[in-house]
Design a protein around this nucleic acid. Structure first.
Lengths: 233, 233
DNA sequence: TCTTATTAGTGTATTTTTTACACTTTGACA
DNA sequence: TGTCAAAGTGTAAAAAATACACTAATAAGA
């Protein structure tokens, strides 16, 4: 350590960055928000929004900052995904990246995004462009994680509006899990959990029977969880 | 980037390290392998084995190296757990740590460890000493992860000998999940999966009916998995 | 205002899975 | 040869998951 007491070791350090896989949903297929790279390498290619970690911020704080700066996304569900550390994953130099995934209410986002000049676009998950760096790997892992998690944690609601119909919820689950679900069994199960608040409000201006709105009751969820309840769909 | 083409950014970088939560089992309670710190900070305190990441190795390679250098453990199951990045998690300076968890066959390990002079010791999970840094958090998370994973991935076998009795397997699951399991139902389920090879060998020198040995059939597991089979216990 | 199109909303019977439960067998040792 | 300790084994009941089809409501268009 010699004259330097600030550093615990002298050999070269990898740079540290975060990248974000951002999921959105608007009724059809599951979507990802990608940004176009402005600089080399991979200039003009699509990539996950990402950036370097400042010396005084956690990687999660960094991911949230990047989410806002590069994608215009704020106040959303975010969770650490995996840390990618292949020495050659970035052609410039050694960069270790802590990947996060975020669940965004697309409607809300689109309002914000309209005001910005960010080069960010939604892509259907089944129709993604080739991505820069190892971002393809990150996306693959994020989809897998979302699929796995959505069945035993009520995180799907993050992708919907505050109020939603049971059909919207079902469509979302079908989009994530990739298989059709029986309507009656789905409703029976989800309502049986007691996590949804039935609202006194229905859809308007639909050319069919209007569906009732529900909202996710987070308070009930936490209380039940404390009593040993396990969400499972 | 100007004159500097080697570095993608100039501001100070966190140091990068890995720490390993090492699980072992010998029939009673689940155990953790801890090492005594030789240097400050936390000199003479118990901690997870850990160390800095070299510039040309992945974090996983680093974890495996540390596992061997500091705990004498080689060729074991290892999986990335989580990346810890609180700016003050290390009193020396900013160090981001990618935590891993490892599953070790304790019998095999004890043979190796006997030859070494490492200050490493097994502690029962219910009786851990206070740990250095944020290692307590890491351990907590690792236990949670192991609990969650053991039911839908056949990783428990990593903790047992190549051949094991069904009672040993059951005792292991009981130790991890923390609740008793019905013997007949357990056997029915695990044998029904077709993942265990029945060996023509029984326990010796036991003062009771000798139990049959089984081994985990990894080939069968992979084949079944490809056909859409999902392990679940 | 009547018809059409479209999705909301609902219950039951069957199958599958999970759970609860107790006695006989085996082998070492005293 | 009796005792002790854990191995090994099946069935019935309960719970959960699945399969399945019609009526209700509303807007749009004839």
């Amino acid at each position: 350590m010699k004259q330097n007491t600030r550093h615990t070791y002298e050999f070269p350090r990898p740079a540290l960055a975060t990248d974000c896989v951002i999921f959105g949903f608007d009724g059809g297929e599951l979507k990802l928000l990608l940004t176009e790279r402005e600089k080399e390498p991979f200039r003009n290619k699509w990539a996950l929004p990402g950036g370097f970690v400042f010396i005084e911020e956690t990687t999660e704080a960094c991911a949230k900052r990047i989410l806002f700066e590069k994608a215009g996304v704020k106040h959303v569900f975010i969770e650490q995904l995996y840390t990618f550390s292949e020495p050659d994953r970035d052609p410039r130099e050694r960069i270790v990246s802590v990947a996060y995934f975020a669940l965004v209410n697309k409607h809300q986002y689109d309002v914000i995004a309209g005001r910005d000049t960010l080069k960010a676009e939604w892509f259907e998950i089944s129709n993604l462009p080739k991505l820069a760096f190892d971002h393809g790997k990150m996306v693959k892992m994020a989809i897998q994680r979302l699929k796995g998690k959505v069945s035993y944690q009520p995180i799907g609601f993050e992708l919907l509006d505050e109020k939603f119909t049971l059909s919207q919820l079902q469509t979302l689950y079908e989009a994530i899990l990739g298989n059709p679900i029986d309507k009656r069994n789905f409703r029976k199960k989800i309502l049986g959990m007691g996590l949804l608040t039935e609202l006194n409000e229905k859809e308007k201006n639909v050319a069919r029977k209007a569906a009732r709105y529900y909202s996710f009751n987070n308070k009930a969820y936490k209380e039940l969880t404390q009593k040993g309840f396990h969400f499972e769909l």
